[in-house]
Design a protein around this nucleic acid. Structure first.
Lengths: 260, 260
DNA sequence: ACTCTGCATTCGAGTTACTCGAATCTATTT
DNA sequence: AAATAGATTCGAGTAACTCGAATGCAGAGT
């Protein structure tokens, strides 16, 4: 095998980083790391040495490996430079104003949403959430808004995978498929306690120039004070925003096509 | 040259990532990237191919390279697992309550602070700030709080470097050194518009078991409504918190030693 | 319509820097 | 003091890397 077109070292290094990431709060030892990543201990050690020096990984008091602060710095840089985020910010802020609830911005990554921005409402009950957190597509407002606009092939590929039933109200199978039709028609998605009990959200997708959904935003609030009607009342304004944001990033207007 | 103790590939890959990070909002081309990192274009291409596939880098519409969302996911994971952050959270929240102003948590990385957490005040004038953002040590409340507790050798090393004068009130040279003495004595630092005009902060360091400052927290507010007296009024409570947080992460009580 | 220019991508020869298992070192536990 | 678990170093062998040059591709200029 001569020169492939990518770097095995880089791939393995990030496999290690992900292994550390997956290890969670307790960290992980070198040996465990090596076996998870499927490489020899001594090799893993070599990589880890570099990653430590770079600050991508870190060691805790017990000597276990953790993620390092370099990741935070890079992520901060990413957020500073993210065009979608910059374009969406003012709209999100306005949406918090009019709704009085917390607003999130997410991007589509593989079969998940990654939260990249959040504007919190002044109200006291804070929904715990993190920038960088991931969430599934099928049971969130942002996710369903994007799924509804995805090409049928890609969409079915995602829907055919295992879909976690997170609450009694989570939709899967044909019910979900039907729901996506409704989402496409009305131009927004409602997560009616499908992802987390007691939390209701409205979500809308943002499109790029090729007409693919690249991200979405949502308004989330405790179900007790945020009814389905509230969602519908918010929708016209939010739809105009989704169109504006999409235009700002050079994309198309979402929800303007008929599709299977 | 036989087996060194670290991986050249990993080092170079991250040099590329940093080069992309430094490139800023406009992204960067492969050629420019290669020359900045000091490697051949074809080699850079190989690395970049892997980094793209991993989502660490991304390409924009124009084909320029940008940072990718994988960094956000990893950073989110880091924040979830960060012990200091977990230990400090409740205190920071309480500090926002009592002060009514925005509170930040930062860690010491090299000669800079990296912000890892923020709890915003309800008040409307929002100080723009980002998790992941970096700030210098010599002209911030967090930075001075940590500098004051750093070993003299390390401290002088940092102070002897070039120190940016950011505002008319920024302290450098002997004035700064004297100020650090005051900080050590009183157990907290005040940034009196030294980093940014119109912004005043109180900062306190958090220590690890070896007695080194590993992080700090600060209360920041518009100078107009946050006087030096306000800072002093807040100090006793904040000092108790710094001690508690340090203890929680297995560290010593800060500001309890005499030093040069 | 054609060429030019800038950049991305592929290719192939040469060799560096990687990979692995085993040995050694270090720290913690019994 | 011995045992255990993990980190670190070593050395032989070779896979995967590096570089310059060639090729491919798209947009700008004439």
């Amino acid at each position: 095998m001569q020169s492939g077109r990518k770097s095995a070292s880089v791939d393995k290094a990030f496999e290690l980083v992900h292994a550390v990431s997956d290890a969670g709060r307790d960290g992980i030892t070198l040996g465990a790391l090596a076996s998870r990543a499927g490489i020899a201990v001594s090799t893993a050690h070599r990589y880890v040495t570099s990653l430590l020096e770079l600050g991508v990984l870190d060691r805790d008091a017990a000597g276990s490996y953790r993620l390092g602060v370099t990741l935070i710095m890079l992520a901060g840089q990413y957020l500073d430079e993210d065009g979608l985020r910059a374009a969406a910010r003012p709209y999100l802020a306005e949406l918090v104003e009019v709704s009085g609830e917390t607003v999130h911005l997410g991007v589509l990554v593989g079969e998940q949403i990654v939260y990249v921005d959040k504007v919190e409402s002044a109200k006291s009950i804070r929904l715990v959430s993190h920038i960088g957190k991931r969430a599934p597509l099928h049971c969130t407002a942002m996710g369903k808004a994007m799924l509804a606009l995805l090409g049928p092939a890609r969409r079915d590929e995602i829907l055919s995978g295992p879909l976690e039933v997170r609450t009694p109200k989570t939709l899967v199978g044909n019910a979900l498929l039907a729901e996506l039709g409704v989402v496409r028609d009305q131009g927004f998605a409602i997560d009616d306690e499908e992802n987390e009990e007691g939390v209701r959200c409205v979500g809308l997708a943002i499109m790029n120039a090729s007409g693919e959904p690249v991200g979405a935003f949502s308004v989330s609030a405790p179900a007790a004070r945020f009814s389905r009607d509230d969602c519908h009342r918010l929708a016209p304004k939010a739809r105009a925003m989704a169109a504006d944001i999409s235009k700002r990033i050079g994309g198309r207007t979402p929800y303007r096509r008929s599709s299977t």
